[in-house]
Design a protein around this nucleic acid. Structure first.
Length: 415
RNA sequence: GUGGGUGUAGCUCAGCCGGUAGAGCACUGGGUUGUGGCCCCAGCGGUCGAGGGUUCAAGUCCCUUCAUCCACCCCA
């Protein structure tokens, strides 16, 4: 084995691609019915777009980005997430001038230099949705509903929706300070990571999975208690909308995000079937980001779905069936092989999946191959049949066969 | 970056206290010279991840290294 994929990157083989296609086509049609339009942005952007929006102190920016300098010394980065690029495009092309509310989605690969693990890769694919221009909370509910419906349309219930509110520029700083104050005399009880976090990004402590830290945090003040009046109303209204849509959710005041740009609503859709990687979708509101990147002060909300994780869930549930050829033509003899070769292509042009074997093997071998492929019908044509004008058409499921005239065979088989 | 598990045929794996490599599936051919997935027989296929060491002898023991998986971290 000389050449193999690089660590954390992988081939998606044909068998698996079938499931990807199902997911993507369901997503496209569902998103369209919600008024979302597809956008494709470059895989590479200028460095600052990500460092500014995601946050310098986040793990993503500080140690996970694939960054390089091109020959002119420009600092470029393979996108670690989609939102920053979409926001950039929204501003650059003044998409807000066309419609007051812009709904965009995209599907494509992201790159993060993390240690690979179950459900975690260095190149991974996301379906991404962004709604610009409406402050919510109906837009929040709509966006969350879209994510939920996507999973439902794929037959995936049994996922839990967690929601939280992180507050806004008004109330979040107040909570941060309060949390810091609470943690000051409890530092000895925290793990080294959390001790560091208590200084740099105290909200992240809620993410820690260590029992000892969980205990400290269990008595900590809750974000939701510190929400300002508008934020509290927004959050309550969102919950009311979700309830009336019949969408179950879990209030999780420990749900914080690893990207700095989130404000107010955050949510995560989780499963217990993927080991430590329990999030299959995550997102939230990012009202300050468009302005931060130099655009107008427009609110926005969005989410990302991890396609690999979705595929794993589908595969666990049995996956999808392999496609099978509509027809296999078993040609016996040189003359019939040449004639059948033309018929095969005549039928393929009409959209039928037709196979034949080019090696002029015996009938048994060809039937065996047709069986393996799962062909629905087999047309048997030897040189004798060719001259008499009658072939044999066998239905592989009922095992019945009949004589068929060969004069107009391509036309006859189209139906 | 830090732990732990695993590397043997194309795939899934067995291989005991060290004695010169095995099964199932897949593939090719045959049993059946013109009728399918089953069955039977045969064949193909391996520097045992790589490098070093111990030994008369290493897939097996020791060291190093690489790959991969899982977990921490973080996230989709």
């Amino acid at each position: 084995m000389e050449f193999t994929t690089i660590k954390g990157f992988k081939d998606i083989l044909p068998e698996e691609v079938v499931n990807w296609q199902i997911i993507e086509s369901k997503a496209r049609s569902l998103f369209t019915s919600f008024g979302f339009q597809e956008i494709k942005t470059p895989l590479m952007e200028k460095n600052e777009i990500f460092s500014r929006s995601i946050g310098e102190d986040t793990d993503i920016v500080s140690k996970e980005m694939y960054s390089l300098k091109d020959s002119k010394g420009q600092a470029l980065t393979l996108r670690p997430e989609a939102t920053a690029s979409v926001v950039r495009a929204y501003i650059q092309h003044r998409l807000y001038e066309k419609y007051p509310v812009q709904k965009l989605f995209s599907i494509g690969p992201m790159f993060r230099h993390e240690r690979p693990q179950k459900g975690r890769f260095r190149q991974f694919y996301q379906i991404n949705a962004e709604l610009f221009g409406d402050p919510g909370p109906k837009s929040d509910a709509e966006t969350i509903a879209l994510a939920i419906y996507l999973f439902e349309s794929l037959g995936l219930g049994n996922l839990s929706l967690n929601i939280n509110s992180l507050g806004c520029v008004e109330c979040r700083p107040r909570f941060r300070e309060e949390l810091k104050r609470y943690l000051i005399d409890k530092k000895d009880l925290l793990c080294t990571d959390c001790r560091r976090r208590s200084e740099t990004n105290p909200l992240r402590i809620f993410d820690c999975k260590l029992e000892t830290c969980k205990q400290v945090v269990s008595d900590a003040p809750s974000v939701t208690d510190f929400l300002c009046e508008p934020c509290r109303e927004h959050f309550e209204s969102l919950q009311a909308h979700l309830k009336s849509l019949g969408i179950a959710f879990i209030l999780n005041h420990r749900l914080v995000r690893g990207l700095d740009y989130y404000t107010r609503t955050t949510f995560e859709i989780q499963t217990d079937r993927l080991g430590a990687q329990n999030a299959v979708a995550g997102g939230g509101r990012y009202d300050g980001l468009v302005k931060l990147l130099g655009g107008p002060d427009h609110p926005a909300i969005g989410f990302a779905v991890g396609i690999e994780r979705l595929v794993s869930l589908l595969l666990e549930d049995g996956g999808s069936e392999r496609r099978k050829p509509d027809l296999f033509i078993a040609a016996l003899g040189k003359k019939s092989e040449d004639t059948c070769f033309n018929w095969v292509h005549g039928l393929r042009k009409t959209g039928m999946w037709v196979e034949m074997d080019y090696g002029s093997k015996g009938l048994k071998a060809q039937m065996k191959k047709a069986g393996r492929l799962g062909a629905k019908r087999v047309l048997i044509v030897g040189d004798d049949e060719l001259s008499s004008g009658k072939g044999i058409l066998r239905d592989m499921e009922t095992k019945s066969q009949e004589e068929v005239g060969l004069d107009n065979i391509v036309e006859d088989l189209k139906k």
